[in-house]
Amino acid sequence: MKLFYDTVCGGGASCDAKLLTGAEWFLVFTCVAIVLAQRPNLNSIAGFSFVAAITAVGYYTLIWVSTFSKGRPYSASHVPLQNGKSGMDRVTTIFNALGIIALSFRGHNLVLEIQGTLPSSSKHPSSKSMWKGVLISYLVIALCMFPLAIAGFWAYGNKIPTKVGNLSIFLEFYSHNASKFMKGVTYMLVIINCFTSFQIYAMPVFDNFELRYTSFKNKRCSRWVRTGLRLFFGGLAYLIAVAFPFLPSLAGLIGGMALPLTFAYPCFMLISIKKPQRSSPMWCLNLGLGCLGLLLSLLIVIAAVWTLATKGFHANFFKP
Rank of each mutant, 00 (worst) to 15 (best):
K2V: 02
M188V: 14
Q115T: 10
W283M: 02
F246R: 00
L285Y: 14
V32N: 04
K2E: 15
T310I: 05
Y59G: 02
A264C: 14
F173W: 04
R230N: 12
K183F: 04
A151L: 05
A315H: 05
F216K: 15
V111K: 00
G107C: 02
G228T: 06
S279P: 00
L139G: 15
G184R: 11
F232Y: 11
G184V: 09
A33I: 09
A258P: 01
V32H: 07
M88Q: 12
L289W: 03
I300R: 05
K163L: 08
L135C: 12
Y5D: 11
Y59M: 01
T227P: 00
P80G: 05
S137K: 00
P119R: 10
T7M: 06
I271P: 00
I200C: 07
L231H: 03
A37R: 02
Q38V: 04
I271A: 00
H78V: 07
L112Y: 05
S127K: 11
T227H: 04
G107D: 08
S215R: 14
N193T: 07
Q38R: 13
S168K: 15
F318K: 02
N109F: 08
C267V: 02
L296A: 15
P281W: 10
A56L: 07
F181N: 08
S122F: 06
F313I: 09
G235T: 09
T186C: 14
T93W: 03
T262P: 01
S121Q: 05
M203N: 01
W64A: 09
K128E: 11
L298S: 13
A309Y: 02
R230E: 09
A303E: 03
G252E: 04
G228E: 06
P119C: 03
K2G: 08
A76K: 00
A52E: 06
C144K: 06
A97W: 12
Y213R: 09
L296G: 09
G107V: 01
S197G: 07
L285E: 10
I302T: 01
A52P: 05
A53E: 12
L167K: 08
S249Q: 13
S14F: 02
V225P: 06
I240Y: 08
T30V: 13
E113N: 15
K132Q: 07
F263Q: 07
P204L: 04
R223W: 10
D16N: 14
G99F: 07
V242Y: 12
N43C: 05
T21I: 02
W131N: 12
I300L: 03
A258D: 03
V185D: 06
H108L: 00
V134C: 10
A52K: 03
S14K: 11
C15W: 01
H78M: 04
P266F: 08
L239A: 15
G152V: 10
S49I: 02
K18R: 15
S104D: 07
A97E: 02
S297I: 06
C291H: 01
A142L: 15
V185F: 14
G116V: 04
G87Y: 05
A304W: 05
V225Q: 11
L295D: 08
S297T: 09
H108Q: 13
K18S: 08
K18V: 03
L171F: 13
K275M: 06
V242C: 12
I200Q: 09
G256E: 01
K311S: 14
C194G: 11
G256I: 06
Y74P: 00
R223F: 11
